[in-house]
C-alpha cells in the first residue's frame, strides 16, 4: 500500500471510531426530542456520569466489559428518575424542559467535580494489542468500540422496528394524542425513552473512558458534537442521526488530518451551518405532528 493510501485509511479508521461514539450520543438526543420535543442538553452530563461510573466500577475490580453495562443501567435508571421527578411536568411546554435540562447540567457537572475532582483519569485499556494492516495501525480497543456501537445501533433499530415498545414509541412520536387514544401508555413510553437516552449516552461515555483520558468537562464537548450530528441528520430522525454521525466523524477527522488540526471543531460547525442553510431541518427531517408544530 502506498504511503498516502495508508494515511488515508488510518484517518478513515479513526473517523469510524469517533463516529460510533457520536452516533450513540446523537441517538439519545434524537429519540428524546422526537418523542417529547425537549432539547435535552443534560445528555452531555449523563455521558460524563457514565464515563466516571465505568471508571469507578473498573477501579472497584469489575472488568471493563461488565463496568460499561452496569454504568449504562445505573445512568438509565437515573435518567428515568429525572423524567419522573422533573421532565414529565414540562411535557406540554418543551421549552421549560429545555431550561430544566440546563439546570441539570449545572447540578450534575458540579456534583461530578465534587465526587471525582477536576483531574484527568487515565484511559482503561482492556485490549492492548494493535493490528497492523498495510501500515495502518488499528488498536483492537478501537475496533471493539466500533463493534459495540454497531451492535447497539443495530439492536436499537430492531427494537424500534419490530417490538411492541418500538412501535408504541414511533406512534407517540407521530402523534401523542392519537397514540393515547389507541391505548398506548404514553407516559410509560416517554419515561422508557428517557431511560434509553440516558443509557445510550452512558454507554458512549463508558466507551470513551477506554479511548481517551476523561475529565468532568467531557460532557459539553460531546454534547455539542452529538447535537451537531442530530441536527444534521434531522432532529427526531433515528436513521438520519446514524448517517450524520459518519458524515460528521469523517469531516472532523479528515479536516484535522489534512488541514489545520486546531480547527477541528470548526469543520463540524462549518458543515452544520452549511447544511442548515440549505436544509433548515437537517438532511432527513423527521415526520409527525409534534415535529411540524415545533420546527
Amino acid at each position: 500500500m502506498s504511503q498516502e493510501l495508508s494515511v488515508f485509511m488510518q484517518q478513515l479508521f479513526n473517523a469510524l471510531t469517533i463516529s460510533g461514539v457520536y452516533a450513540l450520543v446523537a441517538l439519545g438526543i434524537t429519540v428524546i426530542f422526537g418523542l417529547t420535543g425537549i432539547v435535552k442538553f443534560s445528555i452531555g452530563e449523563l455521558l460524563t456520569l457514565g464515563a466516571f461510573l465505568t471508571f469507578a466500577f473498573w477501579e472497584g475490580g469489575t472488568t471493563f466489559f461488565l463496568a460499561v453495562p452496569l454504568a449504562a443501567i445505573a445512568v438509565g435508571g437515573f435518567s428515568l428518575l429525572l423524567e419522573r421527578g422533573a421532565f414529565r411536568f414540562t411535557l406540554d411546554q418543551p421549552i421549560n424542559g429545555f431550561i430544566v435540562s440546563l439546570g441539570l447540567i449545572l447540578v450534575l457537572q458540579n456534583l461530578i467535580i465534587e465526587i471525582w475532582g477536576v483531574g484527568f483519569k487515565a484511559p482503561i485499556r482492556p485490549f492492548t494489542q494493535v493490528w497492523e494492516v498495510g501500515g495502518v495501525s488499528m488498536p483492537v480497543q478501537r475496533w471493539f468500540v466500533v463493534w459495540v456501537a454497531v451492535v447497539i445501533i443495530g439492536l436499537l433499530f430492531m427494537v424500534l422496528r419490530y417490538t411492541k415498545y418500538g412501535r408504541a414509541m414511533r406512534a407517540c412520536a407521530e402523534d401523542r394524542d392519537a397514540a393515547a387514544l389507541m391505548g398506548i401508555p404514553v407516559a410509560l413510553v416517554i419515561a422508557g425513552t428517557f431511560a434509553l437516552g440516558g443509557a445510550l449516552a452512558a454507554t458512549a461515555g463508558g466507551l470513551l473512558a477506554s479511548l481517551f483520558a476523561i475529565q468532568p468537562f467531557l460532557g459539553s464537548q460531546y454534547l455539542l458534537k452529538g447535537f451537531a450530528v442530530a441536527l444534521v441528520g434531522g432532529l427526531g430522525n433515528v436513521e438520519g442521526a446514524v448517517i450524520a454521525a459518519v458524515l460528521v466523524g469523517l469531516t472532523e477527522t479528515m479536516g484535522s488530518g489534512y488541514l489545520a488540526t486546531e480547527w477541528r471543531d470548526a469543520y463540524t460547525f462549518g458543515l452544520l451551518i452549511a447544511i442548515l442553510l440549505v436544509r433548515p431541518r437537517g438532511l432527513f427531517p423527521a415526520r409527525g405532528r409534534l415535529q411540524e408544530t415545533l420546527q
Partner: peptide, 20 residues
Amino acid sequence: EKLRGVIYGSLLIVVMILFP
C-alpha cells in the same frame, strides 16, 4: 461555596416546575 452550581441548577429546576 463549592456547590454553587448545584444550588443554581436546582433553583432553576424547582422554579421552572413549581412556579413557571
